[in-house]
Amino acid sequence: MIGVLALCAVISILVTVGIVVALMVPSLEFFTEVSPAEFFTTAKWAPLFKPAAFGVLPLITGTLNTTFWACTICLPLGLGTAIYLSEYARPRARAVIKPVLEVLAGIPTVVLGYFALTFLTPLLRSLGWQVEIFNAFSAGIIIGVLLLPTVASLSEDAMKAVPSSLREGSFGLGANRFQVSTRVVVPAAISGIAASFVLAISRAIGETTIVLIAAGQLAHVSFMPGDSVETMTAFIAATGAGDVPVGSISYKTIFAVGLTLFVITLLLNIVAIRMVRRFREVYE
């Protein structure tokens, strides 16, 4: 019986192994046909055209573009929400706000994509900013809204873990709530907060549906918020959903881009996990 339980635990390892194999094998084949130098350093991405070009930089800059706007929303506002909930809000306010944020975090991404495309982009245009129909800014902002509750909840957990004796100690010295929050609680929780930031960045990079719907599929190097861009994830999803012949070089690009995405998010996740661990060591 315990063996069966242990077997279930091994499944999660198999999933990771499966992911690595699924990404590596076609990627290695891909890189025999396209040199890594071309893939990582050239800035023209046209894998489905003839002549094909395989410079992944446009997809990376597209990802950075949407991720940047997501971060401008979810990092500062998520932290602000967390400080409010942890240090300022009365129990009754918390009891209302926390479930509402949980609902926001549970909204499917396809719904948020619809919201970005049919509400935010028209709103920006009616305000006189001639963004493209598909643009990095709208998608990024809505990803930020999606991740705001995540940052808020993880950062709040980190702040709640700061012993209340430190708060009492600083209130006892005549500090006000602002000083207690900014000089004691936030510094003491900083590695947990940083971990929530890194995790949010990782998730913004990996978010697919919102960018697929609202950011477009125009692979070019652009840092303009109003431009249409293609992210790594949008390329994978659009190409994977299409009818690409198995074994063709176009098919293998899915895996090469997937591997790039996987390595980036893996590194960020490891950084976040280590930060959380360091934070726990201090307080547990």
């Binding site: 999660s12 390892i13 992911i19 699924a22 697919t208 999803a237 994977g240 996987f262 996740n269 996990i273």
Partner: peptide, 27 residues
């Protein structure tokens, strides 16, 4: 290792799971 692996899997983009399905289950 299993614990670390689970923590990490939780944060892997969903599209990567799609690639896994495409490679192993569908094709």
């Amino acid at each position: 290792l299993i614990e670390l692996n689970i923590q990490n899997l939780a944060a892997i983009p969903s599209i990567i799971f799609g690639i896994l399905g495409l490679a192993f289950l569908v094709r």
